[in-house]
Write a protein that binds this DNA or RNA. Sequence first.
DNA 1: GCCGATTTGTCCGTATGTATC
DNA 2: CGATACATACGGACAAATCGG
Lengths: 239, 239
Amino acid sequence: MPKMKFEGIYKDLKQKIETQEYEFQQFLPSENTMVTIYKCSRNTIRRAVSLLVKDGYVQSLHGKGVRVIYQPVDPAYFTIGGIESFKESAARNHKKAATKVIQFAELTADERVSRKTGFPVGSELYYIQRVRYLDEIALIFDINMFLKSQVPGLTPRIAAQSVYEYLEGTLGMQIDVSKRKMTVERATQIDHKYLELKDYDFLAVVSGQIFNSEGIMFEYTQSRHRPDYFCFQDTATRS
Amino acid sequence: MPKMKFEGIYKDLKQKIETQEYEFQQFLPSENTMVTIYKCSRNTIRRAVSLLVKDGYVQSLHGKGVRVIYQPVDPAYFTIGGIESFKESAARNHKKAATKVIQFAELTADERVSRKTGFPVGSELYYIQRVRYLDEIALIFDINMFLKSQVPGLTPRIAAQSVYEYLEGTLGMQIDVSKRKMTVERATQIDHKYLELKDYDFLAVVSGQIFNSEGIMFEYTQSRHRPDYFCFQDTATRS
DNA sequence: GCCGATTTGTCCGTATGTATC
DNA sequence: CGATACATACGGACAAATCGG
């Protein structure tokens, strides 16, 4: 059960939309109706709805109502959306996940690394390379750097399971915000070595900096995706 | 001058961050301070700040303050973020824009088009193909479909300038929300014909459905980008 | 370790404006 | 025109996290 009221309402509405209790192009109940349904103030309803807007689930129309624009997605691709661990993404995409750790090392950030990652020069880092398998196929080559001071006791064993479970569960860290860039890059020797790229010579590359709830950038990630299977989803609003 | 208070405050803060009056890792003034600065309620301040959070400009830290995490971007790439016309993107990236209309036709959506675009079968559409040049280089191949009933009087001449200026200016339409998907696809004959792809055999493809403020999906877009120069930016928050 | 001051987070009630029907 | 519905804004109350003394 969610602690916050608005979050509970948000999740309830989201679930009702996903199960198509509220269908595409239908309107949600009016804000005043929901105030009585959920026994809360109108502000709280508006807050929950604004999250649905951000997710691209609904569109609110002044004077008319709030219309559902969510449509189920084609499950063929491996889609990426919010901040998710590989395990979580795999579960959402209904695929079987596996991870192989290629390299696990320690590293001190020099000028070059700092420019690329945003870590200050001299930062003590863990450097990890992993191959991600979905339904037995090698699809993603991951490069991670973690700030040692924020992620103490990280081991190859944990890297093979879920670093995020370790961070959030064992260490009690709260992951907050991720700034990402998506580009297309030519495949390297390493990519060809670990991914089954066939004749593909390009990869979809997602690079990101991740901040925790203390405002510290604790991770830099680069995920190199096999181009077929890759799909990045996004909702944007005007002005 | 913006009509809404929170919007004015948002823009003022945003500009101060971009010009680095508030620098990376610095804190904004506290909410109570800003209440006196901008002579408004705390809710209004919080609303403006929440927009900056959504933009990935700041991160708010409970009990501490609101920290700037904005950093200027490398101007080499052509970056994509919110909903923008090609002209607006070009201006923001400080590049000279030009457009060549390859095809301008009318079309009725059949089953295949409907599945791909989301328009209902039987919709009357304009079908446009355009090549986009930045600083004289052919970078993007655009395919647009517009719902005729919503975009009456569209002409090749307008398509060569700015369709969005026509929509928002002349027709008074308000563009609201865009749902997008980013994938990587193999280049077609057409791509090679109109874009200078050299030996690249893949493209970054952004497909999207765009809704206006009446809740009508009036546009389907597919933008096929030359892979070098392409950069898609995003900010995500956890849970 | 505790306490108080500061700061952000959640929630409420109300008033007024504006668009739709 | 009035009723309905969303949008903006205010002010207040209390909770939770942080920090310094």
